[in-house]
Design a protein around this nucleic acid. Sequence first.
DNA 1: CGGGGGTGGTCTAGATCAGAGACCATAGAC
DNA 2: GTCTATGGTCTCTGATCTAGACCACCCCCG
Lengths: 141, 141
Amino acid sequence: MTKAQQGNLVAVRGMLDSVAQWTGAPADAGQCPVRDVLDRVGQKWTLLILVALEPGPRRFSQLHRQVGDISKRMLTQTLRQLERDGMVARQVFPTKPPAVEYSLTDLGRSALDPIGLLLVWADRHHGAIRAARARFDAAEG
Amino acid sequence: MTKAQQGNLVAVRGMLDSVAQWTGAPADAGQCPVRDVLDRVGQKWTLLILVALEPGPRRFSQLHRQVGDISKRMLTQTLRQLERDGMVARQVFPTKPPAVEYSLTDLGRSALDPIGLLLVWADRHHGAIRAARARFDAAEG
DNA sequence: CGGGGGTGGTCTAGATCAGAGACCATAGAC
DNA sequence: GTCTATGGTCTCTGATCTAGACCACCCCCG
């Protein structure tokens, strides 16, 4: 384990304690910062769209093509949410037909740092996951 | 930006390229490691349960109480999936009634590193997000 | 002996969420 | 005139999530 990783782990434990504060009170889950953000993250397209916007501003249809298997409905919805959360900026150009450009805000860009690490982890351990799945399926099949 | 963060960013860009490889082919999205892992992450309870297991092994009802507002059904389902993915180990003790203990595997523990950073990010920027939301809601209301 | 509580779940019914695809007004290229 | 593209919205259907009843088992308390 690297020094940086140890540092992370310390921070993680701190966060865990802080999460523990809230897990006791289910009703207040909406107030817990971590639950709040985790709900956004746990929304299937959020991360993918943030990642898609990383290289630079993108237009609606461009994003639609880039992500591929998202429906326009979900794309609209997810973008609106990200805009509401201040992660994405939406700019309309009054051309005919109007063009709309989406870009990351500073807040959105800052989120890419932890998200990126998640992707790196995914890439690195994805083989182990597939192997575990095969083992599991063989054992119960 | 710290040196570590710059390092992350380089890695992120690498991953983004690698994601781009797959985003062109929607049909193969299931084959893309990142999409694969992101689908798990985007499942509302997965991260919360991994986090809940971090301090040490937990029994079923213990987890249920700890997380609070998860249904038994979803708890079972999420644990099974994590077990299948090799992130969580399930051990049954043949007592009467049988006790079942869930614990993180090495793979599961390794995932907590990036997840932890996400939590730290959440905690740090959660104020900005709330502010952005208030602004957005005021502007359109 | 008869509850009441705790074990680890499963099952069903209802709510909520996501996806496919039609539709809209507009306009330029063919 | 028709085909494309723009950025969406709308509806219908199917997946997913939740609440809560239920189960077999055992212990403890009376």
